[in-house]
Write a protein that binds this DNA or RNA. Structure first.
Lengths: 147, 147
DNA sequence: ATCAAATTGACAACCGGTTGTCAATATTGC
DNA sequence: GCAATATTGACAACCGGTTGTCAATTTGAT
């Protein structure tokens, strides 16, 4: 299989995209670390803050395995940021809900995130961010339609 | 902390970028799965194919922890794709080298990757890939200079 | 040449993700 | 209403990453 210019350019983009992914994961962890949390916990806290959900629902929403989310939810609960509430409509699947402490911590993270995003956002010319987003979305679109 | 349009746009880009990262990681695993490998193993095989290196060197190169790379290297070695060679210049740090089997498998992965990249590359208009790469790099640059 | 400091691999514990299995419970079709 | 099926949480094993500790070895400064 011979290499083509377009193929090389694509590989280049993939490499750069992987790098970006790492940087962003890191940013999420850095943003949440001051409150002893992580990107993974943040996602769960954020989702549960909007509506109490079962672990299986959260997993479907985040497109993660049920068991993976279960671990995070158990950790959050052990640390007192969430609690399992009886679910009147399903005796197996308890509802994960924020505790007061969970609300406080999520709020602290969100404040920090907003400050960070506002600050970073200003480093781009007007319209540039939309352009970057469109570029990434185009890439995702091509990667996702498998044929 | 109030939200700003630029901040919201930035947050949007971050979300999209995280999604991209996931899709790319997945692509790496899919590309290597037919040979029973993974993205992580692929990186190590690729690096070692150019030059035999110690685990610590590989870790520095990939910007991963020494211990994380050690685990992958041990797995690869256990499966016969790599071997530890005595290092004349350091009695502790053996050199990780490809075996014949490792070379075969890496070659198979590379062929599959090239076919994939060539195919995907053709789905973009000329110049579009360079544009996407530049957009992502701009984002990485801003994220990386911490101030 | 010696001695302090840095590097290294082995080991262990953990986080966040996966897959697979199992028993309990819900849901659906008839 | 009942039986087949699907969903769920608990549990376990694994991968790929992290941090931390330790003893052995290298390296570097004097």
């Amino acid at each position: 299989m011979k290499r083509t210019p377009a193929g090389d350019a694509f590989t280049d983009v993939v490499t750069t995209g992987l790098l970006l992914g790492g940087v962003l994961e890191q940013a999420g962890d850095t943003l949440t670390a001051p409150d002893g949390q992580s990107g993974a916990r943040w996602k769960v806290l954020g989702i549960v803050s909007k509506r109490e959900m079962t672990v299986a629902e959260i997993a479907r929403f985040l497109k993660l395995s049920r068991q993976g989310v279960q671990k995070v939810a158990d950790l959050l609960t052990k640390e007192g940021l969430t609690a399992y509430l009886d679910n009147p409509s399903d005796r197996r699947a308890k509802l994960l809900a924020l505790t007061n402490r969970g609300r406080e911590i999520l709020s602290a993270i969100q404040t920090r995130q907003r400050r960070w995003a506002n600050h970073m956002g200003e480093k781009f010319e007007v319209g540039k961010l939309a352009e970057i987003k469109a570029a990434i979305q185009k890439l995702i679109a091509v990667l996702s339609d498998s044929d």
